[in-house]
């Protein structure tokens, strides 16, 4: 997993609630058996005017000039600003993969769907929950200020605006620890292999029908 410590980045605003994982990465791209390369199809149906299929050369496709990420001022954005319930819908990890592959390192929203939220942590993409009022204000500032950047510091759990305002956010200590150090969770869990085996043996004795 990629480490995340801090990041100062351009912010792109996606002013819409309930953005689902089908919108983030449409299903036709889920046919890939790889883990990379999804960035070019992030928000495919909103981003391009033609219909995308896997294997198409995206440089030949027509961009939708109205879609926010296609506006030159948001090119190279590293922080995505979104509305409530971001990432609802399917469990596809392809959604965080696509966001990360596109270049995003953090997503700020008033709330996230549960599975999406936990998937992000597994790959080193930081989902940040900020109060609705604060998100509202940042939307306002981003829209009115070209080149608007935020600084995210995971260690301190802060988001700092250009004017120096500091907003703090919550993060589970364990998830923070893994992210800061880019730890392999499977490796960590396997440190408890003996405990897992003991648990399993007990279960096998008490509920043998689970081990048919």
């Amino acid at each position: 997993m990629e480490k995340f410590h801090s990041c100062k980045g351009l912010v792109a605003p996606l002013d819409r609630a309930n953005i689902d994982t089908d919108a983030i990465i449409p299903k036709q791209f889920l046919k890939s058996i790889k883990r990379s390369g999804f960035g070019q199809n992030l928000f495919d149906e909103w981003r391009y005017l033609d219909h995308g299929e896997p294997g198409m050369d995206v440089t030949q496709r027509r961009l939708n000039p109205d879609f926010i990420l296609n506006q030159p001022r948001y090119r190279g954005a590293q922080i995505l600003l979104a509305r409530a319930n971001f990432g609802c819908g399917s469990s596809r990890e392809h959604a965080p993969w696509a966001l990360q592959d596109y270049g995003f390192r953090a997503i700020i929203a008033p709330s996230f769907a549960d599975i999406f939220f936990s998937n992000c942590f597994k790959i080193g993409l930081l989902p940040i929950v900020l109060d609705t009022n604060i998100v509202d204000r940042i939307f306002h500032e981003v829209n009115s200020t070209e080149g608007y950047c935020l600084t995210v510091n995971l260690e301190k759990q802060t988001v700092t605006t250009p004017s120096g305002e500091i907003c703090t956010f919550d993060v589970d200590p364990f998830r923070k620890h893994c992210l800061l150090n880019g730890l392999d969770e499977i490796g960590l869990t396997l440190q408890y292999a003996d405990k897992i085996k003991a648990f399993e043996e007990k279960r096998r004795t008490e509920q043998p029908w689970l081990f048919a």
Binding site: S91, D114, S118, F174, I186, T189, I196
Partner: peptide, 23 residues
């Protein structure tokens, strides 16, 4: 019973466990 992402699929395959936060 609950849905998981691909990293968790790998984690469950490898360890028979998942690291979860109680809802």
């Amino acid at each position: 019973a609950f849905g998981i992402g691909t990293s968790e699929v790998e984690h469950a395959l490898a360890t028979q466990c998942l690291l979860l936060k109680k809802a």
